[in-house]
Design a protein around this nucleic acid. Structure first.
Lengths: 350, 350
DNA sequence: AACGTTACCGGAAACGTTGCCGGAAAATTG
DNA sequence: CAATTTTCCGGCAACGTTTCCGGTAACGTT
């Protein structure tokens, strides 16, 4: 039996005024005597009154809650994005309701339903790796609840999107590898359904093509973000009669797995095989060797997504969804060789 | 302008029955004709009806939301605990509202207010490192909202607590270091306000005492979980004329910093200095060298906390808060030396 | 035929807010 | 001093549910 919380009604009775007056005093809407207002605020403070936002939400048909659905948050990627969302959301008086799909479409759907039931004002999400149908998401949008995607999305879905330049980042990474003299470059790719994976693969391919290096299907291995998959893939690469001399990895957890596998096989990094990942986990900094990586502005992604969403919430139908593409940055660490001035551009090309 | 969502009222009108009947049909409470029930469910499905849980919460004075406040979730510690909470909570039909205090007392207070306003049914929390007064938390409890603490708590606070055996874990770690031949063991400790820090320090001290090793104040340095602090502290240790031969570190992020600092100073681990941390981040596994650590059952901590909380929510006042102490486990990796059979117990002791 | 029982259903209040609207008192104006 | 405006306040409906309570019709029982 929970002890009853104080309501505006309690305050009204104690001060012998009406609840409307109390309400006005509390949210300082006009038409209120400064004296009464002061009295109300004082009493509210004494009684440790906390407004019942449930009631307010019902009345206003607005919850001031932003829902977030991410695949997971045990790797630091999503938490860091959420940090950005939180910063921006709190500034505008929004609270966060976070849930994880655990990379499962089923759970993603459940989460979506929960978000709808909770009547969130808007939704920020990154799809699970399994998500290949979108009716549950369209159902949210049909209700007029704006959705902003980041990182993991599908082209056929409407809505604002915040992404990084996957193509360019991948291109730069592979281009860099080539400039350090690597020629047989493998790519541990992401789930094929995600737009992101394709873009990174394209960047990878085009960089190879630019330098006249043949693109080999067998060197592109999708890893699906499943634990163990990257290790397997890496082992597979090592078992090849003609080992690659570099691996470009789609994301951070995958890269760590690859790294562990390489070390287990006593492969010297970067002497025998160079490693570059598309990432931003701080892990890259303190593994051995520290990983050269294409880093993403995670915090900024979160802030941007939140800003877009809040705009859309306030502007309503008038708002046109937009796509924000943020820049990545290549950070050179120790998992790649130095750029060889001579081998920078193979003679075959120039 | 948001398109109106369908309500039980819409269903009622379409079927020419009353909203009470619709309500009964949907939550299959008794007194309902199977035929009408079927019709209602069918139409609800067709209209893609999602119950408005805001309204239900208001009516029932129960939100089925569990609030979680943690200091941060960019390190994997808290996310993993939250994973456990989520598993257990979802099973019982609870949703999660998560927020971060960012290790700030001010924000922690704000978060608390938001949780109260949202009328969460219960709260699971780990205090920020700054928290040294507890009125905001007592204010939650006074309202009859149960609170369960984990990891970071204060002894003077009432409520269920889920913790690990900090004392024992620390003791074992230091005991192990001694058995590997270390004699001058430093301790990078946690914020002094947290019970946890004290317990770990005591375990450290008692292990030293057991082996007759003098406890030196200068070797115990509180690190406060602030970025950069551990690095400074480690450097300080290295600058001593008489360097320690081992460091026992209070948690994982701190250990990583220490590790980086040691490496920068070209200190050989574990030959010159051994490193042990109280932790569970997977980081420990893939840094170089992999860290010997006292690991905690993070997922289990979350599940236990959720279970305790839900029990208290359902049982109400009858529930007596309890303290669950979970066991830690020492995992030996490469950052410590091997146990020297000879040096296991210094002769001075036996 | 009168009554009790059963099986369903509808009305209405309540949860705590907010905001419109009208009204009374006070202040301002001519 | 009357008329008008301003200032402040209270009543009331509404948000979408749930649930208590009572009512009606059909059926079975003497």
């Amino acid at each position: 039996m929970r002890s009853k919380q104080t309501t505006i009604w309690d305050i009204a009775v104690k001060l012998n005024i009406s609840i409307s007056t109390v309400s006005r005093a509390l949210r300082n809407a006009g038409d209120i005597n400064p004296e009464t207002k002061k009295a109300v605020l004082k009493l509210a403070d004494e009684l440790d009154y906390q407004p019942n936002s449930i009631a307010a939400s019902l009345r206003n048909s607005k919850t001031n809650i932003i829902g977030i659905i991410v695949p997971e948050f045990i790797h630091s990627y999503f938490p860091r994005v959420i940090l950005g969302v939180q910063e921006e959301a709190y500034k505008s008086g929004y609270k966060l309701m976070i849930s994880q799909s655990g990379e499962s479409l089923e759970i993603e759907k459940e989460n979506i339903h929960a978000m709808i039931s909770s009547r969130v004002d808007g939704l920020i999400m990154a799809l699970s790796r399994e998500t290949d149908e979108y009716d549950h998401i369209r159902s949210v949008q049909k209700r007029g609840i704006p959705v902003v995607f980041f990182n993991r999305f599908a082209d056929e879905l409407q809505g604002s999107k915040v992404l990084v330049d996957d193509y360019k980042g991948a291109f730069e990474a592979v281009d860099y590898l080539i400039k350090t003299g690597c020629r047989r470059i493998a790519h541990l790719a992401g789930p094929e359904k995600l737009t992101m994976s394709g873009n990174r693969i394209n960047g990878y391919i085009d960089a190879l093509k630019l330098h006249g290096i043949p693109v080999l299907e067998e060197l592109i291995i999708p890893c699906d973000f499943m634990e163990g998959k990257a290790r397997q893939a890496t082992q597979h690469l090592l078992n090849m009669p003609d080992r690659p001399d570099a691996i470009f990895v789609v994301n951070d957890p995958t890269a760590i797995e690859a790294l562990i596998c390489l070390k287990e096989n006593n492969v010297k990094i970067p002497e025998e095989i160079s490693l570059v990942c598309f990432s931003n986990a701080p892990h890259s900094t303190f593994v051995d060797p520290p990983l050269t990586a294409v880093v993403q502005p995670l915090f900024e992604i979160g802030k941007t997504a939140a800003r877009l969403l809040i705009e859309q919430i306030t502007e309503g139908k008038a708002f046109v969804p937009s796509i924000k593409k943020l820049e990545t940055e290549m950070v050179i660490r120790k998992s790649t060789r130095l750029v060889s001035p001579a081998g920078q551009f193979p003679s075959s090309l120039r």
